[in-house]
Amino acid sequence: MSISIQNLNKQFGAYKALDDINLEVNSGELLALLGPSGCGKTTLLRIIGGLDVADSGKLLFHGEDVEQRDARERNVGFVFQHYALFRHMTVFENVAFGLRVKPKKLRPSEAEIKRRVHELLNLVQLDWLAERYPSQLSGGQRQRIALARALAVEPKILLLDEPFGALDAQVRKELRRWLRRLHDELHITSIFVTHDQEEALEVADRVVVMNKGVIEQVGTPDEVYAAPATPFVYQFIGNVNLFHSRDHAPWSEQHGDAVAYVRPHDIDISRSAQDATALPVEVKLVRAIGSVVRVEVALEASSELIEIELSRERFDAAPLADGDRVFIRPRQFRVFEEASAA
C-alpha cells in the first residue's frame, strides 16, 4: 500500500516538530527516516500510525484519506522503540493479542489462532520461546517478538520506531540483515526510524534525511551519500571536510564566499603542487586503521585540520610521515554558499 503525505504540520507548544512535510512512499518499499534526535522523525511515524494527529495537512493510504481513521482502524503494524511487549503475557499470548481482540465475527477460531501464532513465531525463528515471558528474553528476541506481534494482524503498513536502538552492536548488525531479508520475503510497505546512518544506508530502499522538522533529502542510499543535497546531509552522513573559500584565493575568485564539502577519501595527496588549486599542508598525524590509513593534515593558510582517508595500497605506494610538507587537492566536492552552511 502506498502512502502519500501532503503539507503535514505539527507543533508542540512553540516548537515546530514537522514543518510542511511532503513525502511519497511507494507500495512495498522499505523506507528509512533518518535524522538526529528531535528532528521530527518519530513524530512523523506516529502520525502515520495514528498515534498522534497532525495540526494540518493530508495523509493518504493508497489514495484514501485516513485522517478520520483512528489507530485501530488503520491496519498499521507498529513496532515500538522499547518493544512495549505486554509484560504479564507469554510470548504466545503477546503475538495472539491482535487476533483475540478482534470483534467476535471476525475473530479466528482458537485452532486458527494457534496455527497463525506458531507460523509467525517460526517466521521470526523464535517458536521455542512461545511459553516464556518478555522479561525472560534478550533484547534482540524481544524485538523480533514485537515484530511478530505487529505482523499478526496482517498489516498493510509496518512502522518501526528505532527498531534496533536499544540493542548492542553485534545484535544490531544481525537483526538489520534479518529485517532486510524478512522485508524481501513479505513486501509490506515499511517505514523505520533511525538516527544511525549506517543502519539506514544498509537496510533501506530509500532514505529520508530529516532535520529540525524539515526533509533535507529523499533518495536511495547511494544518492544521499554520494550526492548530498544540503550541507546538513553532507555532515550527517559520513565524514566531511570543510574548505572555506576565503582561505584560498583561487577558489574565492571562482565561487565567491563559499564552502566546499569534501569527503576524506576524495582527496589526493602529492609531493608537489600540480596546479594552482592544490593546497600546501603539513602532515600532523598518520594512523593505520584496519584497511584504511587516516592522515590528518593542517592547512598552511589557516592551520585548520583536514582529515584524509587513503587505502592501504595507495599509502604504501607513497608513504607519509608526521611533519611532511605536501600538497592536497580535492577530487570531488560540492560548494555551498557560506550562509547556508551549518
Binding site: A71, R72, F78, H82, A84, L85, R87, G98, R149, V153
Partner: peptide, 13 residues
C-alpha cells in the same frame, strides 16, 4: 503508555 498504544494499534478497543 506504550503497552496501551501497542494494544490500540493491534486493534483493541
Amino acid at each position: 503508555k506504550e503497552e496501551e498504544e501497542a494494544a490500540v494499534s493491534l486493534g483493541a478497543s
